[in-house]
Simulated scan of single mutants.
Amino acid sequence: MTMPENRTTWRDARYDMPVSRQLERYNELAAKDASARARVELVARGAYDPARHGADDRPPLTVAEHIELLALAESIARTVRHPANVHHALLAGVTWAEIASIVDSDEPTVRRNYQQWADDQHELNQRYPNLGMTADEHAAATARAAQSATDA
Rank of each mutant, 00 (worst) to 15 (best):
M1V: 12
M1H: 10
M3S: 13
N6H: 13
N6E: 14
T9W: 04
R11W: 12
A13I: 00
R14L: 06
D16S: 15
S20M: 13
Q22D: 01
L23I: 11
R25E: 07
R25L: 06
L29Y: 03
A30P: 02
A31R: 10
K32P: 03
S35E: 15
S35D: 15
A38D: 07
V40F: 13
E41G: 05
V43T: 09
Y48D: 08
D49S: 01
D49V: 01
A51F: 09
R52S: 07
G54V: 01
G54Y: 03
D56W: 08
P59W: 13
L61A: 00
I67G: 09
E74D: 08
A77L: 12
R78W: 10
R78Y: 10
T79E: 07
H82S: 01
A84P: 02
V86Q: 05
H87F: 11
H88N: 14
A89L: 06
W96I: 02
E98G: 06
I99A: 03
A100P: 01
S101N: 15
S101T: 13
V103A: 09
D104G: 09
D104E: 14
P108Q: 04
T109K: 13
R111P: 03
R112A: 15
N113W: 05
Y114K: 03
Q116V: 11
W117Y: 08
D119E: 14
D120I: 04
Q126G: 09
R127H: 12
N130P: 10
N130W: 11
N130H: 12
M133S: 10
H138A: 04
A140H: 13
A145M: 02
Q147I: 11
S148D: 10
A149E: 15
T150P: 08
A152D: 12
A152L: 14
